Simulated assay, not measured.
Amino acid sequence: MRRGAVHWGLLALFSDGPKYGYQLRTELDTRTGGMWTLNVGQVYTTLERLHRDGLVDTVGQNDEGRTMYAITEQGQAALAEWFATPVTGAERSRSELAMKLAIAVTTPHADVTGIVQAQRVESMRQMRDYTDLRRRADPEQEQAWMLLLDHLMFALESELRWLDHIEATVLRRRRAAGSPAPAPVDRRPGALAEAAEQPPAAGKR
């Protein structure tokens, strides 16, 4: 049975000793710098599945009456296997942005260039935010958080290169087909930076 990242992330938290449900939620939030926050219901649902599958077991209650869980030998073996197994293409390919653009390039009248430009501005805004967060992080106390930020920043750099590739490919094919080219995009660094400084649209954080 295929298990998701939440399943493994919570199981890994038991490596340093027994824990109760809400403690798992707090520790996951702390270790990921708030980037991977779960509600209490998700935590307890996952914890029930870990217990059902024999990966954790109850070990009594703490002084406050909370049920404590600890990783089992079966859980330790499964966790070791997860750490040793590379992430496959199936986990990487489920991207809303990839799906949006894959559909847009084959949809009549879809403004692919506009979609690309809007995403570029948003990705640059995110890059600026992550850069600022990393600058303010404590290298001694927040190493895991900094590594997560590095991952997000490298992913954004790759995304921006991919957006450039899509835009160039669409323009080339439109020219080859004799279709009118879209209005030119102001790609000057200053212009993009000004756009990135604009506040997010209503309903976006």
Score class of each variant (00 low, 15 high):
A183K: 12
D111N: 02
V6C: 06
M146Y: 03
Q74L: 12
A118F: 06
R125N: 04
P199W: 00
H7C: 03
L79P: 03
P139Q: 01
S179K: 14
E96C: 11
G4I: 08
M146T: 00
Q141D: 14
H165M: 08
P139A: 00
E140M: 09
R136Q: 13
R49E: 15
L13G: 04
K100I: 14
A5R: 13
G54L: 01
A155R: 03
D132V: 06
A98W: 11
M153L: 04
G178R: 03
A90E: 14
Y22F: 13
N39I: 14
F154H: 08
R2D: 09
V43C: 06
R2L: 12
D111M: 03
T67K: 08
D111S: 05
R187W: 15
L55P: 01
V121N: 01
Q141L: 15
V116A: 03
L163G: 01
L149K: 00
S15K: 07
N39D: 13
G41Y: 12
E48G: 14
G190A: 11
Y69N: 04
A176L: 13
L133Q: 10
L156R: 00
K100D: 13
E140P: 06
L152K: 09
T107E: 00
L24A: 03
L55H: 06
V121C: 02
Q117I: 12
E64A: 15
H109V: 12
E157K: 09
A118R: 08
P184I: 02
T88S: 11
R134W: 08
I103W: 08
R136D: 12
H51C: 10
Q42M: 15
H51L: 10
R161W: 07
M146G: 04
T72G: 04
D138P: 03
H109S: 15
P200M: 08
V59I: 06
F154P: 05
A110K: 10
W36N: 15
R161L: 10
A183C: 10
H51N: 12
S93W: 15
L160E: 05
E73P: 09
Q23F: 05
G203D: 14
V40W: 12
S123K: 13
Y69A: 01
A137K: 06
G178W: 00
Q126V: 04
W145S: 03
R188Y: 10
D63H: 07
E27Y: 08
